[in-house]
């Protein structure tokens, strides 16, 4: 269709049809795209917009919905209902991967064990990997997430606050992991959260909106509040932060952590074991503080423990060991 169109219109402008065309319109064809629901308003709008564009302009994309079930009673079970309704509304196949299936733990169980502190660390690490595993199961070649401008600005700030130059250099790229099997991209990188919510509201999209019951005091929330204050004073600040993030002079020779693979599950990791495996090991051994925080002395002792036992019980620990990357 796209090629037909070009022939028909010749070199004339697509809009006025009179003067010569000056710009090529890039078209991405035949890619499988997939999306998921985390902040459900964002991903609902993303699902709607992508399926609508795909239909209207014959992009020829195969779209799937992917959602992660963290196992949080009263939060995720409600939002999953919404995602299931979306599956029917947009006619897109839905895949739900759950922490329980992948790791053998639900967030409820994890919180019961470790308390309300640091639980976002577990959830975040596990979700990232769950998405990749879900995407691998669906055999797609691109993962699209609903991260909006507010999210990215917040990440830039957090990386400055915690001194993470490696993440600071890559957190603003619109596509990441292009050398990996499944690149991820964020089409809403420059879209304000407000715009997305308003779009969902005026389009009367069916979305679910509530805060995670375990995260009211998370550190991220503090940065988020600051971003909201900034936006109130100068809406442009959010985009300016992203611009700054893109423009930072970070030399390519800055020492970056080397990317390898986890010895246990084969997932990308800069360490011997990926973070999910370390956290999971801690949970399974009843040492939930393993891999969290700065208490080096304590950690090292546990780490030795883990290493010693590594030889005897390596692969069986993780239930997703059968997944290949």
């Amino acid at each position: 269709m796209a090629e037909n169109h070009k022939k028909a219109a010749g070199r004339l402008c697509y809009l006025c049809n009179q003067r010569r065309a000056a710009l090529k319109r890039p078209k991405t064809l035949e890619q499988f795209v997939i999306m998921f629901g985390l902040f459900v308003a964002d991903s609902t709008v993303l699902a709607y917009v992508l399926s609508e564009l795909n239909r209207r302009h014959n992009y020829g994309l195969d779209l799937f919905l992917l959602s992660v079930d963290e196992g949080i009673t009263g939060y995720r079970d409600d939002s999953l209902e919404t995602v299931k309704r979306n599956e029917i509304q947009y006619g897109l196949p839905l895949k739900i991967v759950s922490y329980k299936d992948l790791y053998g733990w639900t967030m409820d169980e994890i919180v019961k064990m470790i308390g309300l502190k640091n639980n976002c660390t577990f959830c975040g690490v596990f979700r990232r990997q769950a998405l990749d595993r879900g995407a691998a199961l669906l055999k797609v070649d691109k993962l699209v997430t609903g991260h909006n401008a507010d999210d990215i600005a917040e990440t830039v700030l957090l990386n400055i606050l915690r001194g993470d130059i490696a993440r600071l250099s890559r957190c603003t790229s619109i596509t990441t992991g292009e050398d990996g099997p499944i690149p991820r991209c964020k089409p809403f990188k420059y879209t304000y959260e407000k715009e997305i919510v308003m779009y969902a509201y005026f389009k009367r999209l069916d979305y679910f909106s509530t805060e995670c019951i375990y995260s009211p005091n998370a550190y991220r929330g503090f940065a988020r509040e600051f971003i909201k204050d900034l936006e109130r004073m100068r809406p442009r600040a959010i985009l300016d932060i992203i611009k700054s993030g893109e423009d930072f002079r970070i030399s390519t020779s800055t020492k970056m952590p080397e990317q390898g693979t986890c010895e246990r599950c084969g997932y990308i990791s800069s360490q011997k074991w990926c973070k999910a495996c370390v956290l999971l090991e801690g949970l399974n051994k009843g040492l939930p503080k393993l891999g969290i925080g700065r208490s080096r002395g304590l950690d090292n002792n546990h780490w030795k423990d883990v290493k010693q036992s590594n030889g005897t019980k390596n692969i069986e620990g993780k239930q997703c060991g059968s997944l290949d990357f």
Binding site: V156, I160, G245, F248
Partner: peptide
Amino acid sequence: HVLAATVKGQGYSLS
């Protein structure tokens, strides 16, 4: 100043 420059979009000149 680091945060202010970031917020004002002066990421390039910040350093």
